[in-house]
Amino acid sequence: MPFDAASQPLSLPRWHNLKAEEGDGWLSLNLDGRPLIQLHLEPGDTLHAHVRSLCQERAMQALWAACYWLLSRDPTRQRLALHTVACVPEALASGLLLATEQPGVLLCERASFWQLPQPWLGTATGDAYPQLMQLSDGKRHPRRPPKPRGEVYRRFDARLGAWISLRTLEIDQDVERFNRWQNNPRVEKFWQEAGSLEQHRQYLAKLEADPHALTLIGCFDDQPFAYFEAYWAKEDRIAPFYTAGDYDRGIHMLVGEETHRGPHKVASWLSALVHYLFLDDPRTQRVVAEPRADNGRMIGYMHDQCFHCEKEFDFPHKRAALMILGRERFFDHCKLV
C-alpha cells in the first residue's frame, strides 16, 4: 500500500496508543503521546528509512514499531534499510535488524521480522523446550512441553481492521458452543462429530488429557468464531503416511459462526494459526493438515496460504489430501499485516 497521510493508522498488538503522522517521504510515530521515532523515506525495491530522531529510552520499541508499520503498509515488501547512527545491540541480537557492510545501514528482512515471537505470543516465550526423547505407543518422539492456558496469540489484522487471537479451549466455558458448532450440518458433513453435549464433553476431555493435542478457540475482536486442534504429527495417526519430523505440527479447523466465513476471513485466521505454531517452537519446520480430498474449497484456501498438496491417501474414515506448509516457505511468502 502506498504511504498516504489520509489513510487510517495501524494498531499494534497491545500498543493501543501508537499513532502516526505521515507525509510525502516522511513518517513520525508517537506512543502514549510521546515522540517515538521520525523517519525520512526513500521508496524503491528496498525502502530506505533514514532515522531523524529516536527516543533513546524506547529505542528497541521505536525500531520495532517502525519496521512493523512499514512492512504492514506493503505486504509485498521484503526488506527495509534503516540508516541510523544509534547503536541498539538488542535489535541486532534478536534478529530484528541485520548488520551490513555499509556503516550505519541495517536491514530488516520480512522473513526474519515475522519469526520474532514477541509481541504476538504475549506472556509465552516462544523458547524451545528441552529435547528429551521418549516412547509412547511404540512411537519415539520428543517429550512435549506442558500445555499453555489462556490466550496464546494476538495480532491486529490491518486488512480486516480487527484483532485475531487464539486462546486455549476451556471445557466448561466452551462445550455448549462446541456442541452447537459440531451439530451444524455444514460442519457435520466434514467433521462427522455431531452428538450430545455429554458426548462432546467427553470428546474434549479426552483431548485435554492427550499431551500431543492442543485445543484452541479462534476469536475476532475477542468474539469466538472457530475451533482448532493443533497436534504433534509424530505421535498422530497421520505419521505413517509421510515422514513426520520431530516437531511437525498438524491442524484440524472448524469455523462455527456463519458471519465469519469467506476467503478474507480464512486468510486472516489460517495465517494466524500457522504463524502461532511456527513461533511456539522454533524447531517446527512443517505444518500439515489432512482435509477430506473432496473438500475443494478448504484445499483452495490452503493453496492460497502457500500450502501444497503432497498426495492423497486413505484414512479408515475418509480419503484425505496431505497438505504441507514449510517454515521457510511460510516466512518467505507470508503476507502477514
Rank of each mutant, 00 (worst) to 15 (best):
R149V: 13
A20M: 06
D157V: 14
L279F: 06
W120F: 15
S53K: 09
R283W: 08
A205R: 05
L121H: 02
L160Q: 14
P224E: 10
V288R: 07
T168S: 07
E90M: 11
R167I: 03
P142S: 12
G95H: 10
G195E: 01
Y68G: 04
D137M: 06
A267Y: 09
D157K: 05
A158R: 13
Y242Q: 11
L29C: 08
D24R: 13
E42H: 08
V255T: 14
D172Q: 14
V105W: 04
L10M: 07
Q78C: 08
L27G: 05
K234R: 15
G262S: 06
G104H: 09
A5K: 09
L39S: 05
R292W: 05
I164G: 03
L12E: 08
N183I: 09
Y301F: 15
Q118C: 06
I171N: 07
H48W: 04
T284A: 11
S271C: 10
F220E: 01
L277Q: 15
Q78W: 10
Y203V: 03
L63A: 02
F228Q: 00
H275K: 07
A244S: 13
A5D: 08
W232P: 01
Q8R: 13
L97T: 12
S11L: 15
W26H: 11
C108T: 06
E109H: 14
E257N: 08
L325D: 05
G126E: 08
V274D: 02
H48F: 11
L207F: 01
G44L: 01
L322E: 02
W191C: 07
F313H: 07
V88D: 02
S271Q: 15
W15V: 08
Y153K: 05
L107Y: 04
F307A: 07
D332H: 13
H333N: 13
G44H: 04
K335G: 02
L98N: 04
G126T: 13
F178V: 10
A230Y: 00
A99D: 09
S94V: 09
F228G: 00
Y68S: 11
P291W: 08
D127H: 14
F315D: 02
Q134F: 01
D127N: 14
E170R: 12
L98M: 08
A244H: 00
A128I: 11
K206G: 05
H260S: 10
A321E: 03
Q202Y: 09
A59G: 10
L121V: 04
A289S: 14
D174K: 12
T125W: 00
E109C: 11
H333V: 00
L41P: 04
L277S: 05
E176I: 02
E193H: 09
E101D: 14
R34N: 12
W181I: 15
D314A: 13
G25K: 13
A91M: 05
P146D: 14
G250W: 00
C55D: 15
T259V: 01
R52I: 03
L273A: 15
W181L: 14
F178N: 01
M298V: 15
G44M: 01
T84N: 06
W26D: 03
L273M: 11
G218I: 02
A81V: 00
G256V: 03
T100I: 09
G138F: 06
D314S: 13
P185I: 12
Y203L: 07
R283T: 02
